[in-house]
Design a protein around this nucleic acid. Structure first.
Lengths: 227, 227
DNA sequence: ACTCCATTTCAACGACTGTTGAATAATGCG
DNA sequence: CGCATTATTCAACAGTCGTTGAAATGGAGT
């Protein structure tokens, strides 16, 4: 005997499912499942509603991704813009390290979202790629400014190519977040524990020696305790 | 009036479709479309046969990917093992640079395949992840050996962490191959042209300053013309 | 000539995808 | 109360995917 189809009641629920709640669900699903498993149906399940409801709030899946991007990226850029203000006279090494802390706070635990972002940069629609580029450029300009100011202040080598140097700094941090967990477990057989944190510091020290005008001068003592 | 279904003849064709031919097709499709677009049907189309034939030669799509991996990785490892032999007395900087040339020869133009590999490392089945880890480890050991020998010979800083340093060197080259084309076009608005080659050299110079025991000693003059 | 085997195609299965149109229920307003 | 609006669900469409079982074909061996 089949039970007579326990249909959910239609019409507005007491707990309204609005745009924000859908984006929260989308973010969780993206973060955990990455692009592959992030289907409309999975997001709807996470939000506790029907897949069709998503199309009441968004024009398409792509539009939802863009809305999520619009929600996640500007706060990152705002922090970076604050850090990169020319009036900021903190040591250049500290500012560069803070760049990575900011990226960590906004993207560190979102490995799935990073994977989606990467996938869309490489193979999204033109509209999506343009939107991503605009957001990344806004953040990247801050990194470039910090590097340029570092050169002007005599802290960084004057023969650096600003843009490619910024790319190196940030991308390697992202790679560490993404891949070190897998590599540590399966390839190096080093205890997982603090592997990511150790790799971050090793990378920053290497980077600093590579870009500093006077690499033998010691880094600020409490640099790596900055949150 | 529908034409009477121009069926292909069954049975062996004059041009036999064997394992090699299927792997060739798979490699082309992986390279261009990445994992997402690399369906069994697309590979079959590329090989000029029916999708079902693939299951005559391979147990599953995963098995085909593993076979492709088995065909692509060992030649890379062999080249690296030759380069990392302790009897090799070439300058350490040259050996490190040659590492990147080897990776370039084997993976440089295979952006789709790199993407697939990355995806499988992060989200493949346990069997696939193990197989990939075995291959990567074999190659990575060579890089570690070169770095260790560089330290012993006094060319590299003695406080380097071998494994993480090797990770940095290779991963950044891969990132450059993958992302610089997109970034150059959409974010930096620098002419594309030789951007990847320039980034490669900028990265190697930064890396070398970061790891060398005496970074002020000039690099071998003709380093970057090595193929 | 007949049989057997290796190779190839066909047709379908079930699952999943993004998306849409219609039906339905709760709410706010006059 | 009646009505329009808003929020929600249902059922389906057309497409893709990996995979499978059965049928067909050509050639080799006897």
């Amino acid at each position: 005997m089949k039970s007579p189809a326990p249909r959910k009641s239609r019409g507005p629920k007491t707990l309204k499912v609005d745009t924000t709640r859908l984006l929260d669900a989308a973010q969780r699903v993206f973060s955990e499942n990455g692009m592959g498993g992030a289907s409309i149906r999975a997001i709807a399940r996470e939000a506790g509603c029907d897949p069709a409801l998503i199309y009441y709030h968004f024009d398409s899946k792509e539009a939802m991704f863009l809305a999520l991007l619009e929600r996640k990226m500007p706060p990152l850029a705002v922090e970076l813009e604050l850090l990169s203000a020319p009036s900021n006279t903190e040591p250049t090494a500290l500012r560069l390290w803070k760049i990575s802390r900011i990226y960590w706070r906004h993207f560190g635990e979102d490995s799935g979202f990073r994977a989606v972002l990467r996938g869309q940069i490489l193979g999204g629609t033109e509209g999506t790629k343009d939107a991503i580029a605009r957001h990344i450029q806004r953040a990247a300009k801050c990194n470039w400014a910090i590097i340029d100011q570092g050169i002007e202040r005599g802290d960084l080598r004057s023969d650096l190519h600003t843009r490619v140097t910024g790319f190196f700094l940030v991308r390697m941090f992202m790679e560490i977040f993404d891949l070190v967990p897998s590599f540590v477990e399966r390839i190096t057989q080093v205890p997982v524990g603090q592997a990511v944190a150790k790799a971050e510091r090793a990378w920053f020290e290497l980077f600093w020696r590579g870009v500093a005008a006077h690499p033998s001068k010691p880094l600020p003592a409490d640099l790596f305790s900055v949150e």
